[in-house]
Design a protein around this nucleic acid. Structure first.
Lengths: 297, 297
DNA sequence: AAATGTTTTTCTTGTGATGAATATGCAAAA
DNA sequence: TTTTGCATATTCATCACAAGAAAAACATTT
């Protein structure tokens, strides 16, 4: 299910709340509360609830609204998956460009013909690519795709940039520990070290790693550090997802994350900052050696 | 003249080349060369040349193309000014938002009715604002404008971020001195210290300051530092242009720039990096005190 | 050949209509 | 009074098509 409509996504979100324990079987699903919580009007929420009711996850009684069903049939639940990023036009375009399958100069018309997408999506994608720094509008018609992120040095440069901002972010005066966030992150890392590293996709492993760093930096309370990191990470996704992942290295990486959480819990941001710098420098060195063999593919 | 068309902008660009000495009176203006130089086809270049010929800046002889006129009438030249940023919808929207003249929640329809712009411009502006971090699409219809950049702390946070990246950028292994750039920057700073500080608009002074830092950081050879700086500077423009400028402080600032150039010329990036950190910390402290009195307006 | 002038083709933007989706207002039920 | 269900009003994406602008192809002159 591709969840193209708002109500479809809302159904997934509400199901997430149910599975996350926010609502227990028999609980009332108040339409107004859900609507303001999800920042939409009641109309799409009601549709979402109807979808859930049709799946047997919720129950509806006239003039009494919806409640969580007592025994949600688990078979239906997998219908509400997240859409995969591989189907995203942005990633397809980036992939084709990095792989050299399309020329440097493209027109919107060309993209319209060669990819099965709407014009609006082409516009927004090119706009986004411009913002990410790998596309540029020509003065007249057409666009130019830039080679920046394509070069092997880009990998190292990203790490050097992160080594400048991430340790600094931990030393911000507005930095504040949020144990709820730390607990959550710790749980995730442990779950992965406990086996998921072997079974999850490479794609997923990279994302979990990125998310860890973003969540930590967000604690700095300085949005500019966080935004900058999110931004370079978007590019990293383009680069790294294509490369294979050495799962042994992922163990080291995730253990390092746990170590960092430990230092933060001890209330020692200076040590944490220092450790973060180390963590990034190591990762950069590994990537560097990987990169040298990677150019040939 | 608003220069809405490509040929209009090309006319301005070509005039710039003439005034910059690239073409002398009597020189031939080869359409093909100009076209590939400006990355467009000959069609809009020819239109631009026609505009210039109509203004008496160029001359046209059938089947011989265009040449620079011997005595370009200076009166006409002021018609080819840059468009002012104040007329830019992006800045008008940002200004109205920061000043509290529009509500947090806006629909595209609302903007369409209250500003005299095309739908496409609204779309791209909101997209840009999203990328700058001060707007966000609601799940259903409408957009939410975010207060982030509005708060007084934003000023300080920007400076702290810059203090993290700018000195680090100067220490990048790929950092390379470009004396042409340094000479140019030095000339500009000196010209301003030599009187322009008093006469130019506050708007302009801020921009010159931003541009200096961006140009220096660009020398690092690491595009991620440069991009991050450009990005936060876009926000600073929104914030600072509204505030008045203390011209005495600008002298200090521009003298500091000259000092920095001096250190770079001596080939001492470590000292330059250290000086940069000082320079930014000072500026932050000044802004901080300014900010405390600024909140009331 | 190379540059210029001219024509043809291609690309993009703007407009308005349409329909689907969302927001909102109101009466009825709890 | 609050919540629900439904009817109505808005909002926005999309489509087709026309007009304008740029690119490319062609013809002509130097």
């Amino acid at each position: 299910m591709a969840e193209k409509t708002l109500s479809g996504r809302l159904a997934r979100d509400i199901l997430g709340k149910i599975r996350g324990g926010e609502f227990m079987p028999g609980d009332k699903l108040n339409a107004q509360c859900l609507a303001s919580d999800l920042r939409v009007s009641r109309t799409p929420v009601l549709k979402a609830l109807k979808i859930l009711a049709d799946s047997g996850i919720a129950e509806h009684r006239p003039n009494r609204g919806y409640t969580v069903a007592d025994t949600p049939p688990p078979a239906k639940i997998k219908d509400f998956k997240e859409p995969s990023s591989a189907s995203d036009f942005y990633f397809r375009l980036a992939d084709d460009w990095v792989a050299g399958r399309i020329s440097q100069d493209v027109t919107e018309q060309f993209l319209l013909q060669h990819y099965d997408v709407k014009r609006s999506e082409i516009t927004s994608t090119l706009f986004r690519a411009t913002n990410e720094g790998w596309a540029e509008r020509k003065p007249g018609y057409g666009w130019t795709l830039l080679p920046v992120v394509n070069t092997p040095e880009a990998f190292e440069q990203v790490y050097r940039f992160r080594a400048a901002i991430e340790p600094a972010a931990l030393l911000e005066p507005t930095f504040e520990l949020d144990f709820k966030v730390l607990d959550e992150l710790q749980r995730i890392q442990e779950r992965y070290l406990d086996g998921l590293v072997e079974t999850e996709t490479a794609d997923r492993l990279v994302l979990v790693g990125l998310h860890f760093h973003e969540a930590i930096i967000k604690l700095s309370g300085n949005i500019f550090f966080h935004q900058a990191l999110v931004r370079v990470n978007r590019l990293r996704r383009l680069l790294e997802i294509r490369s294979s992942v050495d799962r042994k290295r992922v163990y080291d990486q995730f253990s390092g994350h746990l170590e960092l959480i430990g230092l933060l819990r001890q209330g020692d941001p200076v040590a944490a900052s220092y450790y973060m710098r180390q963590h990034l420098t190591e990762a950069a060195a590994r990537k560097g050696s990987l990169q040298r063999t990677y150019g040939g593919t």
